[in-house]
């Protein structure tokens, strides 16, 4: 379960205070999934980092009743001069997981061949995303925070990602940022639209899309 209460995030910029999130509240019980739509720069990724706990809100509280993943996106916190394998070992240690299992499962899922044993700095964007996605799937989380990750990779990899996420959504939760209505429809029950700091939750993806597209 994830519950956000009156979350506000304000950044100080040279041109004054900029409110990214304005009094955002919602709850996602385990077993349900929510999509988030919004324009570029609307604050979707910031919201995801706050849900995960990597960043602190200016005010408000986040309650996490389960193991929440790091945001799964393009970049991840991979160290460029360490190999894919070494980065996996690090993440496995942080989350107290069995290192060999995490390394093996990530390698098999990411399916990037010998690159797995090369420095991440030599990877393409797509390969990085494959590694990040494989890594997050091999660590046992209840709630997965997905940031537009299904947009990368070839068709086969996309299919593999969707299948893996759907499986996780049965018992856990997904919170998915995406611009693709098809992806959201496939993965989520509810859907929210983030616009000018305000978040509105709709009961179906289509209802949200109608408002968002308008």
């Amino acid at each position: 379960m994830i519950r956000l209460e009156n979350i506000t995030k304000v950044y100080k910029t040279k041109r004054g205070r900029h409110t990214v999130l304005d009094d955002v509240s919602f709850e996602v019980p385990l077993g349900t999934s929510m999509g988030i739509m919004g324009r570029n720069g609307a604050g979707k990724s910031t919201l995801l980092r706050i849900i995960g706990g990597a960043e602190m809100p200016t005010s408000g509280t986040v309650t996490r009743g389960s193991r929440v993943s790091f945001p799964i996106g393009f970049s991840g916190a991979f160290h460029g001069s360490l190999t894919g394998e070494e980065n996996c070992r690090f993440a496995a240690r942080i989350y107290g997981q069995e290192i060999h299992r995490v390394v093996r499962e990530t390698r098999d899922f990411a399916d990037i061949g010998e690159y797995f044993y090369n420095p991440v700095g030599t990877y393409s964007t797509g390969m990085r995303a494959r590694l990040a996605f494989g890594l997050s799937m091999s660590i046992d989380f209840d709630v997965y925070l997905v940031d537009e990750v299904t947009a990368v990779g070839d068709r086969r990899f996309k299919k593999k990602c969707s299948a893996a996420l759907k499986k996780r959504a049965e018992f856990g939760s997904l919170i998915v940022i995406s611009h693709s209505v098809a992806t959201l429809r496939q993965l989520c029950d509810k859907c929210a639209v983030l616009d000018q700091g305000k978040l509105t939750v709709y009961d179906t993806v289509d209802a949200a899309n109608e408002v968002y597209a308008a």
Partner: peptide
């Protein structure tokens, strides 16, 4: 404390590599 020691250990090991 267990989580923190896991995390500190992980960063320590990573530091030896970097």
């Amino acid at each position: 404390l267990v989580v923190q020691s896991e995390v500190v250990h992980a960063i320590f090991m990573r530091e030896t590599r970097t």
